[in-house]
Amino acid sequence: MQEQPSNQITFNYIGRVNSPYKEKFAIPRQPGLVSAAKGSISLIDNANNEELLRGIEQFSHLWVLFIFHGTAQQGWKPLVRPPRLGGNKKLGVLATRSTFRPNPVGMSVVKLENIEQQNKQLIINISGLDLLDQTPVIDIKPYIPYSDSISGAQAGFAQQQPFQALSITFSKQAQEETKKYQQVYADLPLFIEQVLAQDPRPAYKKQQEDTKIYGMILYDLNILWQAQSSIEISVLSISKISG
Rank of each mutant, 00 (worst) to 15 (best):
P5C: 02
P5A: 11
N7A: 12
T10K: 11
Y13K: 11
I14K: 03
G15A: 06
Y21I: 03
I27D: 07
P28D: 04
P31L: 12
P31Q: 13
L33W: 14
S35D: 07
A36M: 09
A36Q: 12
A37I: 08
G39S: 06
I41G: 02
S42V: 09
D45M: 08
A47V: 01
N48H: 03
F59Y: 15
H61L: 00
V64F: 01
I67R: 00
I67P: 00
F68V: 09
T71Q: 05
W76V: 01
K77N: 12
L85I: 06
L85N: 05
K89A: 15
K90Q: 15
T96K: 08
P104V: 06
V105H: 03
S108Y: 03
E113S: 10
Q118F: 05
G128H: 10
G128D: 11
T135I: 10
P142I: 08
P142E: 05
Y146P: 05
S149C: 13
I150D: 01
S151W: 03
F157E: 05
F157D: 08
A158T: 02
Q161I: 08
Q161E: 04
P162A: 00
P162F: 04
F163G: 00
S167G: 01
T169K: 12
F170D: 06
S171T: 14
S171D: 10
Q173P: 00
Q173D: 06
E177M: 07
K180F: 14
Q182H: 07
V184W: 01
A186L: 12
A186P: 01
F191M: 14
I192G: 03
A197D: 01
Q198V: 00
Q208W: 03
E209F: 14
T211S: 13
Y214L: 00
M216S: 03
N222P: 00
Q226D: 09
S229I: 11
I233A: 02
L236V: 10
